[in-house]
Amino acid sequence: MKANVIRLKHMINLKKSNSGVKKSYVPYLFILPWIAGFLFFTIGPLIFSLIMSFFDWPIVGDVKFIGFSNYIRAFTSDKMFYHSMGVTFKFALIFVPLYILIALSLALLLNNEVKGKSAFKTIFYLPSVISGVAVSMIWIWIFDVNYGVINYLLSLVNITGPNWLGDPKWAIFAMVIASLWGQGTMVLIFLAALKDIPKEYYEAASIDGAGAIGRFFKITLPLITPAILFNLIMTIISAFQQLTLALVMTKGGPSNSTYFYAMHVYNNAFKHFEMGYASANAWIMFVLILTLTLLVFKSSSAWVYYESDGKK
């Protein structure tokens, strides 16, 4: 009897350990392609560029270890470093709030029961699907000072439109406008968040006499703050990485008024062939974006409301 029990236990253990071993590596096989891709094409190059940033690494020729010199150089003897940072910050300051506002407005509009809602959803999402270069080419034409659509429309109300892409004072706004047009994913995220708000809250509020504005600020806005947080972080990150539009439309001009930081990195790498310095630039931007993101996260406890916590 005992022997049988022991034998049975042994069999069960074997079975358990067998199926245990089998179960533990199959999931990894499933995600292996993605992990391999991530290691080789993201983490690998990341680490390689970090190493490169401590070297004088010309595209052709000998590589020299120079420690932190690249980083020191960026902060002390590179005037374009600060200029491009300034342009990027200016762009982000104008672009991020406007972008989120527009995405939210579009989502609010889509939240109503209107005819052709799915058609509108598609139309609002379309810009994000078109390739950046194609978009830039279209905008070059739209912004043309003499034959462009915008200046034509302005002329109909007797305003002479500015030289959008040729005037240093206006080019950055042209970039903002062209970037704002690229709505897409954010609208859908806001829409999902809006749909998540139980109707009962609105009904209760109307019964208590709240108007539409009160309902928006007291119910809608607090309940979608998680979506706002997500969109805020994503938009900040993409604002600081803006490159395609400037590269194709203005090449950083006129007079470096749209010389984004990403373009500075690009030029250092592919125009001046200083890979080490460009890598250092890229890592500085990484740390900057990371810092901003962490700051936003830290502040989020003050203004983001998660239904699950029940915190104010």
């Binding site: 030289n163 040729g166 005037d167 240093p168 001009g253 006129p254 007079s255």
Partner: peptide
């Protein structure tokens, strides 16, 4: 060349505007 390019561009762009 970048400094030269900036200078030339500034001269002409500012003139146009």
């Amino acid at each position: 060349a970048e400094e030269i390019s900036n200078a030339i561009e500034k001269i002409f762009v500012d003139t146009i505007n």
